Amino acid sequence: MTSSNASGGRWSDLDRPPLNTSVLRRALLLPDGLWSSLDVVASTGSTNSDLAARAGELPEGAVLVAEEQTSGRGRLDRTWSAPARSGLFLSVLLKPDVPAHRLGWLPLLTGVAAATGLVKAAGADLSLKWPNDLLVTIPKDSDKLRPGETPIGEERKAGGILAERAGDDGIVVGLGINVSLRADELPVPTAGSLLLAGAVSTDRDTLLRAVLRSLADWYGAWVRADGDPEASGVLAAYTADCATLGRRIRADLPGERMLEGQALSLDGDGRLVVATEGGGTEAVGAGDIVHLRATG
């Protein structure tokens, strides 16, 4: 891990200034607020790993942000890579006092909070893919449109969430969001960024403040409701923004099992309820979800 004062080389992109740590701290570390500390490092392997290693000595609300992650991780141990200062790469330490069976709502809640904050601050439409992805719509062939035509949108992943147990009572929630990646910088064809989705702002200081303030609000409401997704409003918000619900999907499940059907709803534990081919339903708690194209 290095300090945030690194300069030269890959740090010299004037379109990607460093985060302003002192301003962020003044804006976010408030009396009686959730966030207790905020550190920004120039580069590290994984903010989740770094924060989890210190979970026992830190209070709830610690925030760690990296300008660059060299070993960022997503679900199923997938890597998350992006150029330095091109996105938001952060982890937060939470210690929710809620029933254990409701902890599965924490990454879903984080998705709602991130989407809510980014819509307001970036002016780009985002949707949620169950269980932990943030999607944007990238205009396709917009340069070939005739006057009055609406561009066809292509759904792309612009962010991901990873929640991991840390210590006796902590959960580290990691969030990665592609902010200013250009088309030639995308790691895979299915990736996107706020810039490519037409965001009106890619100022990372503004976006980070918006995301963390939104997360504090949603998390606070959820904890006060004892983790109840309906009473806290999380269920309604997630359902409204979820691009998976109502779609035909394929779920690649543990044990090399595959399930196809229509995503109907979320149950009380945050699992995805799928209508199966035989006329029944199955609740999926973990798996890799693929949105299938409509036929006919």
Score class of each variant (00 low, 15 high):
A231M: 08
A231S: 05
S232D: 04
S232N: 03
V234H: 00
L235M: 05
L235W: 03
L235V: 00
L235I: 00
A236H: 06
A236S: 06
A237F: 06
A237E: 13
A237I: 04
Y238F: 15
T239E: 14
T239R: 10
A240W: 01
D241M: 15
D241G: 00
D241S: 11
A243N: 04
A243C: 10
T244C: 05
T244H: 07
T244F: 13
T244S: 10
T244N: 05
T244E: 13
L245G: 01
L245Q: 01
G246M: 13
R247D: 05
R250V: 02
R250T: 06
R250H: 05
D252T: 11
D252K: 08
L253Y: 06
L253V: 06
P254R: 07
P254Y: 14
P254E: 14
P254L: 12
E256K: 14
R257F: 06
R257P: 00
M258Y: 00
L259F: 14
E260N: 02
G261Q: 13
G261M: 15
G261K: 06
Q262W: 05
A263R: 02
A263Q: 10
A263N: 07
A263T: 02
A263G: 02
L264V: 12
L264Q: 14
L266Q: 01
L266R: 01
L266A: 03
D267T: 05
D267W: 11
D267H: 06
G268S: 09
G270A: 11
G270D: 09
G270C: 12
